[in-house]
Design a protein around this nucleic acid. Structure first.
Lengths: 216, 216
DNA sequence: TTCGTATCGATAATATTATATCAAAAAGAA
DNA sequence: TTCTTTTTGATATAATATTATCGATACGAA
């Protein structure tokens, strides 16, 4: 079945709105709402209704119906599929510090299709311990583990100085994507997908907005 | 001296690039580089040189010099000032779960002008404990603490269900900005600055890019 | 001192993203 | 069935962000 789904370029801004749509739709769904209009969605997400329709048209093959709106459950399925929430994939965390252990202990990402299965570190005091039933293993075991379990995603929570080296090891081990929380821009081969979570930049925006309010 | 600095609207995209510029400039500075051209910066940040000049013009009053480029140390000072890294302000964390304790234990944000001084929770098993010398207090003490220490920023790391209530308490207590890590859109009065860190959306972008590479 | 050149900063052109407008579709009432 | 109304989806417009172009500046060499 060569569905030949035209893979149009979907902007980051649109992707970023998808979880908002999804969240609201799930809420409505649990209230028993069957159909919903773009106007209602728009008001709750604080965007324009036209934008809602454009966004939804990009990820859902089912068109909205005049006078009725969009089918809530169908939208949920389509958005979840688009976001990859419909198939859970495994991930490992490298760096078992505070943030790394938080990832180990947090089950919430299962709702986002993400299952963290183990952590890795070089600190002998941490290696061997478990958090929420998930082991902390030594970095030396990383390569074999990734290969054996075919892990597609590595989450990097090590200090800045170690980040590039860790990323190299992950790439070598065979992960296809990296979610980086170290405050450093990293270099990866072109076929590897990387997203650096720049909390400093976020904080900067917060500070910037505070500044604009004058009260600093 | 009414400098009357025209506070132009600086886009989020520009603000997000500032930490990248800063990081690179600090690296160059430590290597002893005195002057640097927009072209060189552009190559390292992977943006166009024109954009670099535009961005820098927005935050630095000192102009670049033809044939030489921009003064590195001066740029660092100006960017840090713009980002608010030059004056450290205090913050509290609400929710002493994995992520909340990670914030308590992480000193790195001091470089970004942020000092986390205490955490709050309702769990009696956590209240009274300390992480990295910082106390975990009971939610009931939040109001008095914020008022007494004049805390401007609250970091929310509670589960989704509790997030709105916590935010209300923070606002009532008198914080002026909120950094929200709960996966929920929250309502705040207009004079309060809020930034929701939507990790689900980030993850979605990662998944989206992976999808585009076809190898899913 | 003069010249050649690297670099900036201003302006114009393009690309991207969001909003406004409106004809067409279809549910539900009369 | 026919009419009214809501809502979609397509197209046009506007706003924003990025890139291209080019004259002006000043460093450093001759």
């Amino acid at each position: 079945m060569t569905t030949e789904k035209k893979e149009e370029k979907i902007s980051k801004a649109t992707i970023a709105r998808m979880p908002l749509y999804l969240h609201f739709l799930q809420e409505e769904n649990s209230k028993g709402t069957q159909y919903i209009s773009s106007t209602v969605i728009a008001q709750n997400i604080s965007v324009s209704s036209v934008l809602v329709r454009k966004d939804l048209a990009l990820v859902s093959s089912e068109a909205g119906r005049p006078k009725l709106g969009f089918g809530v459950s169908r939208l949920i399925v389509d958005i979840e599929k688009f976001l990859g929430y419909d198939h859970i994939s495994d991930a490992i965390v490298v760096g078992a510090g505070g943030l790394g252990r938080a990832f180990l202990g947090y089950e919430g990402f299962k709702n986002n299709g993400l299952n963290v299965v183990a952590a890795f570190d070089v600190d002998e005091n941490l290696v061997g311990a478990s958090v929420a039933g998930k082991r902390i293993l030594h970095m030396d075991e990383l390569g074999a583990f990734v290969a054996e379990h075919n892990i597609p995603l590595g989450i990097v929570t090590v200090p800045k100085a170690a980040a590039q080296e860790v990323v190299n090891k992950l790439v070598e081990a065979g992960v296809r994507a990296i979610w980086n929380f170290a405050p450093a821009p990293l270099r990866v081969p072109k076929n590897i997908v990387i997203k650096t979570e720049d909390l400093a930049a976020s904080l900067a925006m917060l500070a910037g907005k505070l500044y604009k309010t004058g009260d600093r």
